[in-house]
Simulated scan of single mutants.
Amino acid sequence: MEEPHPLPEYGPIAPLEDNLNLFGDIANLKVLDIGCGSGHSLQYMNQRNAAELWGLDLSEKQVNAAKLLLENCGSPVQLFESPMEENPGLPHNYFDIVYSIYALGWTTDLNKTLSNINKYLKLGGIFIFSWEHPLHSRVSNKDGVLAFNKSYHEEGPYDHEVWGTPAIMQQFRISTYINALVNNGFMVEKVIEDVYCSEEDMQRHENR
C-alpha cells in the first residue's frame, strides 16, 4: 500500500519538493518522518543519501509495509508504531531534520506533538511539514459560487471523508499552527500556500 502523497509531493495540489527545495542537500543527515505511512517518503530520503532513516506511524499495517519497502535500502532504518503525541523511544537532540508530509493534522494534541518534535531535533535542526489548508473543509463550491459552510475560526475535531472512509480530523487555523510552533521553541522561517494544479488536478479538486 503506497502513501497517497509521499515526497517529493507535499500533498494534493501542492508544489513539489523539486520546485520548493525546502530540504536542501540531505546527504549524511539523520532524518525522522512523523506519520511515515508505508515508507515512500523515507525511500525518497534514502535515494538522496540520508545517513539514517527513522519513522513513526500509528498504524501497524503501515509500519510493516514500510519495513518491507525499506529492508534493502542500504541506510540504517528504525521504525516505530506509536501515536505522534507519545515518544516510543526516539532519541532527543539527535535529528538534523524532522518532517511530516500530510500527516501532522491527524494529531490529537498539537502542542504535545510539537514539543516532542522540538526535543528530537538537534540545536539548529529543521522541521518541515505539510497539511491541508484550513479553508479546504470550510468552503464548498455550489454552482460556481464559493460558500463558507462553517466559520474559519471554529477549531477542533470534525467528521471528514478520507480516501472514501469516514474519519475524524482536526481543524486548526494557520495562526494556531504558527503560535503552537513558536510556543514550543521553533522559529518559523517560511509558510507556503502555493497551489500546483495539473489539468487532472483541476477536475478532481474543483472545490479547492
Results as ranks from 00 to 15, higher is better:
residue 10 Y to L: 06
residue 78 Q to A: 13
residue 166 P to Y: 12
residue 207 N to G: 01
residue 27 A to C: 10
residue 17 E to L: 11
residue 116 N to F: 00
residue 130 S to L: 05
residue 135 L to F: 07
residue 136 H to C: 10
residue 34 I to T: 02
residue 112 K to M: 07
residue 32 L to M: 06
residue 182 V to M: 10
residue 156 G to D: 01
residue 39 G to C: 08
residue 208 R to F: 00
residue 36 C to L: 11
residue 53 L to N: 07
residue 39 G to T: 08
residue 6 P to K: 05
residue 112 K to Q: 14
residue 182 V to S: 14
residue 29 L to P: 01
residue 129 F to E: 02
residue 194 D to W: 00
residue 127 F to P: 05
residue 41 S to T: 12
residue 35 G to M: 03
residue 168 I to N: 13
residue 184 N to E: 11
residue 90 L to C: 07
residue 84 M to R: 05
residue 154 E to D: 10
residue 78 Q to N: 14
residue 55 G to F: 03
residue 195 V to F: 14
residue 161 E to N: 14
residue 160 H to K: 13
residue 68 L to E: 15
residue 156 G to K: 11
residue 7 L to S: 07
residue 4 P to H: 09
residue 101 I to Q: 10
residue 100 S to W: 02
residue 15 P to T: 09
residue 164 G to M: 11
residue 109 D to Y: 00
residue 134 P to W: 04
residue 122 K to E: 00
residue 12 P to W: 04
residue 199 E to K: 14
residue 136 H to P: 00
residue 103 A to I: 10
residue 104 L to E: 03
residue 10 Y to E: 02
residue 207 N to E: 14
residue 87 N to I: 03
residue 179 N to P: 05
residue 119 K to N: 12
residue 179 N to A: 13
residue 123 L to Y: 01
residue 78 Q to R: 15
residue 92 H to Q: 08
residue 97 I to N: 04
residue 101 I to S: 04
residue 113 T to V: 11
residue 64 N to F: 09
residue 40 H to P: 02
residue 178 I to G: 03
residue 98 V to N: 04
residue 178 I to K: 06
residue 29 L to R: 10
residue 60 E to R: 13
residue 69 L to H: 00
residue 156 G to P: 03
residue 82 S to F: 00
residue 67 K to A: 09
residue 6 P to Y: 02
residue 175 S to N: 11
residue 54 W to N: 06
residue 118 N to T: 01
residue 12 P to I: 12
residue 186 F to E: 06
residue 152 Y to S: 01
residue 189 E to P: 00
residue 141 N to G: 03
residue 29 L to G: 01
residue 9 E to N: 14
residue 146 L to Y: 13
residue 192 I to E: 05
residue 67 K to T: 12
residue 56 L to S: 11
residue 65 A to F: 01
residue 33 D to Q: 12
residue 113 T to A: 10
residue 174 I to L: 13
residue 169 M to S: 02
residue 57 D to S: 09
residue 49 N to E: 04
residue 171 Q to P: 03
residue 86 E to D: 09
residue 104 L to R: 07
residue 140 S to N: 06
residue 129 F to V: 08
residue 53 L to G: 04
